[in-house]
């Protein structure tokens, strides 16, 4: 596959284009669910899933997983959960906001801004699940390590690193208020 920043760029651009096509009103619904997923993972998931994993191995009466295997399992679990939430936010009757801007340059600017935010949140979170668990995906040979200097610099700004879990919960509340305000 290649360096992780290329993957990041591709996902980022993909969400930018998706936002341009769907419009910011619908994309804000996706943003809300991304915040929900980030809150669940960073507040509950990273605390309780490792405990549950340990409990499960004891229950099955088998030796605990070694550190690298645990990193693989956790990274994969959170990535899959995140992607499932993302998929559900696009599938079926989606949660969306009602826009009041007519379609035009102003609306396109909002589309791009929200698309960029979603791209950063999605690509950044998937990157974080690799970075936090020391790039388990690199063991498959599909990810090139070490990170190149720009990627190394950017890895400090991945969403879960820049804000505490409660921030994502706060953002959900802000969006809900925006959604229901008269």
């Amino acid at each position: 596959m290649g360096p992780i920043e290329i993957l990041f760029l591709v996902i980022f651009l993909f969400f930018l284009f998706v936002a341009l096509v769907r419009g910011y009103e619908r994309e804000l619904g996706v943003t809300t669910l991304i915040f929900v997923a980030l809150f669940i993972i960073t507040f509950f998931g990273q605390k309780y899933v490792p405990l549950a994993l340990r409990y499960l191995t004891q229950l099955l009466n088998r030796p605990p997983f070694d550190n690298r295997t645990t990193q693989h399992i956790l990274s994969l679990t959170f990535s899959i959960f995140f992607i499932l939430v993302l998929f559900s936010s696009y599938a079926g009757d989606t949660f969306s906001f009602k826009g009041k801007l007519k379609r035009g340059p102003n609306a396109v600017v909002l589309d791009l801004l929200i698309g960029a935010l979603n791209g950063y949140l999605v690509a950044g979170s998937l990157w974080y699940f690799q970075d936090f668990y020391e790039y388990p995906f690199a063991d498959t040979g599909l990810l090139i390590l070490p990170l190149r200097p720009p990627a190394e610099a950017f890895a400090n700004y991945l969403p879960p690193y820049v804000a505490p879990p409660m921030f994502w919960a706060g953002m959900v509340m802000v969006l809900m208020l925006l959604r229901v305000r008269k």
């Binding site: 910011y24 804000l28 906001f97 009602k98 826009g99 801007l101 102003n106 909002l110 929200i114």
Partner: peptide
């Protein structure tokens, strides 16, 4: 988000 909420979404 506040800007988009104020400017574009209701």
């Amino acid at each position: 988000l506040l800007y988009v909420g104020w400017r574009g979404a209701s």
